[in-house]
């Protein structure tokens, strides 16, 4: 179904989206690139000049930067690991014959609808708070000292909160994939003498590969930019212990009011995102083929 006229029409119809996205991407990016080579602090607005790579060098020389880079990747990797593993297990469980499956799904999906600031504040205040949190109450019940989650284990706490938010997404997609597996295949495997574990390993898991890829791809897109949860809970602290790259840029821009440095950090973040994107897109591209 392609004639000259339909191809022409197609081009005209894609054009608005492409142009808008191009502007949305290119213009701020170009401006960020420009600022990243400038000395530009809101506290001394009169003094602006070219500083070459100084803003970038500041990042590379800052020990906080490497920590932030590590934290960013740890957050993405940690959440992906937890959600995929737990999501698979929970999906396998829910896929069993159970009573009230419909309502159960409603409970499981709920965290996905909770906006990040609310999710973060529930966990921070109602659960992890060392005096009034539910976890502290449990610890006291056992006669133990409350754990200072956000002070002592800030990254783990944030990974936990974000994992809770994304677990429903992973679970439901993996469940959908699981339900599309034909039971005849499993029965055939059973006839062939496959144990439950072998059935999972050789039939179910390969069937879910595609769904797992989708979960990883989509979550990564959102996880790379995680901001609200950190802003609400630890503010990147204590010290820089839970500062990720986006949060470090935010601190430079808002706290230090150093636009030049923040811009340089932004460019670094874009490059990092592109490196991740490159590998992801290759995976997604393969998925698109079939």
């Amino acid at each position: 179904m392609s004639t000259h006229s339909s191809r022409l029409a197609a081009r005209m119809m894609v054009a608005p989206s492409v142009v808008l996205l191009l502007i949305w991407m290119i213009v701020p990016l170009a401006m960020t690139l420009y600022y990243s080579f400038r000395f530009y602090r809101l506290l001394s607005p009169d003094r602006t000049n070219w500083v070459g790579f100084n803003n970038y060098l500041w990042f590379f020389n800052s020990p906080d930067f490497w920590l932030a880079l590590f934290n960013t990747l740890a957050l993405v990797g940690g959440v992906l690991f937890i959600t995929v593993v737990l999501g698979t297990l929970i999906a396998l469980l829910i896929d069993q014959p159970i009573k009230g499956q419909g309502f159960l799904r409603i409970l499981v999906i709920a965290p996905f609808f909770v906006m990040p600031p609310v999710a973060a504040s529930i966990w921070e205040n109602l659960f992890m708070h060392p005096q009034n949190g539910l976890f502290a109450a449990v610890a006291q019940g056992f006669g133990a000292q409350p754990i200072l989650f956000l002070e002592q284990y800030p990254m783990w706490s944030i990974i936990g909160i974000v994992s809770w938010e994304w677990l429903p997404f992973a679970t439901l997609i993996l469940l959908t994939a699981l339900q599309s597996l034909s039971s005849e295949q499993l029965e055939a495997a059973e006839m062939d003498g496959a144990s439950p574990f072998a059935r999972f390993r050789y039939i179910i898991l390969p069937h879910m590969t595609r769904a797992i890829t989708v979960v990883i791809l989509i979550q990564t897109i959102f996880l790379l930019g995680i901001f609200g949860e950190i802003f609400t809970t630890t503010q990147g602290g204590p010290g820089s212990a839970s500062t990720t790259l986006p949060y470090m840029i935010f601190k430079q821009a808002i706290a230090a009011k150093d636009i030049g440095r923040a811009a340089a950090g932004g460019i670094i973040a874009v490059i990092l995102a592109n490196i991740v994107a490159y590998f992801l897109m290759r995976g997604l591209g393969r998925n698109l083929e079939n």
């Binding site: 989206s17 492409v18 996205l21 949305w24 991407m25 213009v27 701020p28 990016l29 401006m31 960020t32 600022y35 990564t220 897109i221 790379l224 930019g225 901001f227 790259l245 986006p246 949060y247 840029i249 935010f250 821009a253 636009i259 923040a262 811009a263 950090g265 932004g266 460019i267 973040a269 874009v270 995102a273 592109n274 991740v276 994107a277 897109m281 997604l284 591209g285």
Partner: peptide, 17 residues
């Protein structure tokens, strides 16, 4: 792919511009 990749640009990076 390109369209989706625009989603990967961290919002903070382009916040100021």
């Amino acid at each position: 792919m390109w369209m989706l990749s625009t989603k990967m640009m961290p919002a903070v990076a382009v916040m100021i511009p």
